Amino acid sequence: MAEEADRDSKTEDATEKRISDAIDKGNVPMAREATLFGSIAASLGALLLLGGWMLSHLTEALQTALAAAGSMRIDDREAAASHLVSLLRDAGLPLLPVLAFIAAGSILASLLQNVPSAAGDRVSPKPSRISPLAGWNRLFGRAGLVEFLKAAVKLAAVSVILWLLFRRDLPQFVTALAMDPALLPDLLRDLAAGALRPLLGLALLLAIADVVWSRYRWRRDLRMTKEQVKEEMKEAEGDPFIKVRIRGLARQRTSRRMLEKLPEASVVITNPTHYAVALRYRREEGGAPVVVAKGVDHMARTIREIATAHEVPLIENRPLARSLYDQVEIDAQIPPEFYRAVAEIIHYLNSTGRLPRHTMGR
């Protein structure tokens, strides 16, 4: 009941960070039926490609074993053991390629579901993995019920398919008793391939359903409560008090650099008391005037005081000061719509002899 209540409280979809953390820990969706499908597909492929060769070698091994059966002494341990090892070797070698096919099919089916990654968390010891209570919940919980239903469906479907195949192929089994033994390997290969094809179709349907279900369950288990989402967002964005402090320090550094450049200004355009924008113009540099400092209220007063101390002229132009402050960033050239108004101010200062000498390159 506690597990259901906890699940009901997780109403929010998992964030990208939570999904990424789960994958890093090896918690990825895995459909077991897809692995089973890969094994059956590999078995069918191995049977079609190597079935004749495998059955031929098995037949030869069986003939050799039967031919030597009359001369084998059961009371001689070493001879019996040597005969048994030889039989197992001769019969096992033809099966190795088939087993390799099956293993490769299972591994490939697993790799296609998720990108392989090393996750030490999956192999590290945890009490929950050996806890009887946790094991009981896994067996008899919702996940265990789903696995039981899947196993029941597979067992019933395989039983029906095998029964239908047996009824269909029964006459061939009876006929095989009177056939030439040399023809039996090909017959057995064809019968086995005929049995694997419908099983492969069943495994494909189960694999598709299991892939959908495993990913749905994985997403559902990763869901979060609203409090978890808020906490994660807070961690991602950082402590708001620290962010305010950082922004304050950044503004202080910007203001300090701005005021250090103020003596290089050619003119300060004021509101006259609320806004102040300092412009720097160099004829030899070309280009439009650049905003080297700007501010409102207290900062505007500071700009005016420093400008006065360094003999930078102050020009009152309320609409121009407000527009420059709103539209032009520090260290940026003024846009074309301000060229005429600023040019008139510079021309006026130059004609009256108030323009700083560094402005005209003199």
Score class of each variant (00 low, 15 high):
residue 326 D to T: 11
residue 133 L to A: 15
residue 354 R to M: 09
residue 205 L to V: 14
residue 178 A to G: 13
residue 337 E to D: 10
residue 356 P to L: 01
residue 310 H to E: 07
residue 340 R to M: 12
residue 43 S to P: 08
residue 210 D to Y: 09
residue 200 L to F: 05
residue 288 A to K: 04
residue 119 A to R: 02
residue 130 I to W: 04
residue 128 S to Y: 01
residue 257 R to H: 09
residue 137 N to E: 15
residue 40 I to E: 04
residue 209 A to P: 06
residue 101 F to A: 09
residue 40 I to M: 08
residue 153 V to N: 09
residue 213 W to C: 08
residue 149 L to I: 15
residue 357 R to S: 15
residue 224 M to N: 01
residue 318 R to A: 05
residue 311 E to W: 03
residue 290 V to C: 07
residue 233 M to E: 12
residue 28 V to R: 03
residue 346 I to H: 07
residue 216 Y to M: 13
residue 88 L to M: 15
residue 141 G to D: 05
residue 299 M to Y: 03
residue 24 D to H: 10
residue 195 A to E: 05
residue 208 I to N: 02
residue 219 R to M: 13
residue 279 L to H: 00
residue 316 E to K: 12
residue 108 L to K: 08
residue 78 E to F: 12
residue 186 D to T: 09
residue 268 V to K: 00
residue 43 S to H: 04
residue 116 P to V: 06
residue 149 L to R: 09
residue 341 A to F: 00
residue 169 D to M: 06
residue 305 E to N: 10
residue 119 A to Q: 05
residue 71 S to W: 09
residue 1 M to S: 14
residue 104 A to Q: 05
residue 7 R to D: 10
residue 213 W to A: 12
residue 67 A to W: 12
residue 321 A to D: 00
residue 149 L to K: 08
residue 346 I to A: 10
residue 190 D to R: 14
residue 8 D to V: 10
residue 84 L to S: 14
residue 225 T to W: 11
residue 222 L to I: 06
residue 87 L to Q: 10
residue 362 R to F: 08
residue 138 R to E: 11
residue 136 W to Q: 12
residue 133 L to G: 11
residue 66 L to N: 08
residue 79 A to D: 12
residue 89 R to P: 01
residue 311 E to I: 03
residue 344 E to S: 12
residue 22 A to I: 04
residue 68 A to L: 11
residue 108 L to A: 15
residue 53 W to C: 00
residue 309 A to P: 03
residue 261 K to P: 00
residue 211 V to F: 14
residue 293 A to F: 03
residue 254 T to Y: 04
residue 157 A to Q: 06
residue 127 P to V: 07
residue 325 Y to E: 04
residue 143 A to S: 15
residue 186 D to L: 11
residue 249 L to P: 04
residue 113 Q to I: 08
residue 157 A to R: 07
residue 131 S to I: 04
residue 120 G to H: 05
residue 339 Y to L: 11
residue 68 A to Q: 14
residue 51 G to N: 03
residue 116 P to H: 07
residue 192 A to E: 03
residue 25 K to I: 01
residue 241 F to A: 15
residue 190 D to G: 05
residue 258 M to D: 00
residue 87 L to H: 08
residue 172 Q to M: 11
residue 133 L to Y: 10
residue 151 A to C: 13
residue 7 R to Q: 13
residue 181 P to K: 09
residue 205 L to F: 13
residue 296 V to M: 12
residue 292 V to G: 02
residue 183 L to V: 07
residue 14 A to S: 06
residue 297 D to Q: 11
residue 228 Q to G: 00
residue 322 R to I: 00
residue 128 S to M: 08
residue 224 M to T: 02
residue 45 G to P: 14
residue 332 A to E: 15
residue 226 K to G: 06
residue 41 A to I: 04
residue 186 D to V: 06
residue 351 S to I: 08
residue 345 I to L: 00
residue 171 P to I: 07
residue 207 A to E: 05
residue 207 A to G: 08
residue 299 M to L: 14
residue 43 S to D: 02
residue 131 S to K: 07
residue 18 R to C: 02
residue 160 V to R: 09
residue 284 E to T: 09
residue 215 R to C: 05
residue 13 D to T: 10
residue 114 N to G: 09
residue 15 T to P: 05
residue 167 R to C: 07
residue 273 T to R: 09
